[in-house]
């Protein structure tokens, strides 16, 4: 369905995408995970023919985007990161306009717009101006506009940014069921829970590079340690952290805030006891502690030493 091979992109002297390759099969749900500025939106803009790609090749259904721009664009439905709708027009008019821009005839556009309103759960609000909608409702119409022409590939760029949990779960459920009906989905986010919920395969990118990609299982197998010990301490001596790092079974220590540290452990429970013992020996008071299973977020931490969300 979609193939990227060694795609690069620079803005002036700034290289934003540094050679990314991956493949998305028909019917798949593919997650693109990465922190702010990783290059997710830039990648999507290139796939959708908004900006030309530098080096490398992007193919949609075997067709080069750079050569067959209109054809490949017709196959893709894209949900931009920002709400790209006309605020003074009604939801229905917006949907119909975007449908017609993909070649739908007047009658077809109207029928389809009603279907799409149904899909995003806003049938009763169809005649209202988009500017009167809540953030979550705008997001849903923003997605709806991408569904109008029944694309083969749906690309979503952080479609849930800044909305209430209810709208968010509605959107996630909708996308999941669309995917189950056979639509290929590429989902971009820096919320790992969303990507874990939706996507079979996941790629993590950072600073324009693909760090790792594979199924959820592949990625879990790559996790360096099984457990994260989260500590909230009274006061912190730098020497304490150095000592913890030297303990047996400790993978990595990350200071989140002044009093909060994450200690990544290989799944041995003894190491937990060692850390606590060391704390009491060096006079560090522990206010709070709990254990967490490692997940994609921890994987990102392990790969980059930084957290996914600042």
């Amino acid at each position: 369905m979609l193939t990227l091979s060694d795609v690069k992109k620079s803005f002036g002297a700034h290289e934003v995408i540094k050679g990314i390759s991956f493949q998305v099969e028909k019917g798949e749900s593919f997650g693109l995970l990465g922190p702010n500025g990783a290059g997710k939106s830039t990648l999507i803009s290139m796939i959708c023919g908004l900006i030309p790609n530098g080096e490398g090749e992007i193919r949609v259904n075997g067709k080069l985007v750079s050569k067959h721009r209109k054809e490949t664009q017709q196959m893709i439905g894209v949900v931009p990161q920002d709400i790209a709708l006309y605020p003074t027009m009604s939801a229905l008019d917006n949907l119909m306009f975007w449908g017609k821009m993909y070649g739908l005839s007047g009658k077809k556009a109207k029928d389809r717009a009603k279907e799409v309103l149904e899909i995003v759960g806003l049938t009763e609000r169809g005649k209202d101006r988009v500017e009167t909608f809540s953030g979550g409702m705008k997001r849903r119409i923003n997605i709806g506009a991408a569904l109008m022409h029944e694309p083969q590939l749906l690309i979503m760029d952080e479609p849930t940014v800044g909305i209430d949990p209810q709208s968010r779960s509605h959107i996630l459920e909708t996308v999941k069921s669309l995917n189950e009906q056979g639509l290929t989905v590429i989902y971009t986010s820096h919320y790992m829970e969303e990507v874990e919920f939706l996507c079979k395969r996941i790629a993590i990118i950072d600073e324009g590079k693909l760090l790792i990609s594979g199924t959820k299982k592949d990625l879990n197998n790559r996790l360096a340690g099984g457990i994260v010990l989260k500590l909230t301490v009274g006061s912190l001596h730098p020497s304490f952290i150095e000592q913890v790092k030297k303990l047996n079974g400790v993978e990595k220590v990350i200071v989140q805030q002044a009093e909060e540290i994450d200690v990544h452990l290989q799944s041995k429970m003894e190491s937990v006891a060692d850390v606590i013992l060391l704390a009491s020996q060096s006079g560090v008071v522990i206010h709070n502690m709990h254990l967490k299973e490692a997940n994609l977020e921890t994987l990102f931490l392990q790969l980059t030493g930084r957290s996914l969300r600042e």
């Binding site: 959708c48 908004l50 664009q73 920002d82 709400i83 975007w98 993909y102």
Partner: peptide
């Protein structure tokens, strides 16, 4: 500014 121009350019329109 409202990103609709970008969206227009991602539709098959020159």
């Amino acid at each position: 500014r409202s990103e609709t121009l970008s969206r227009l350019m991602m539709t098959p329109t020159s």
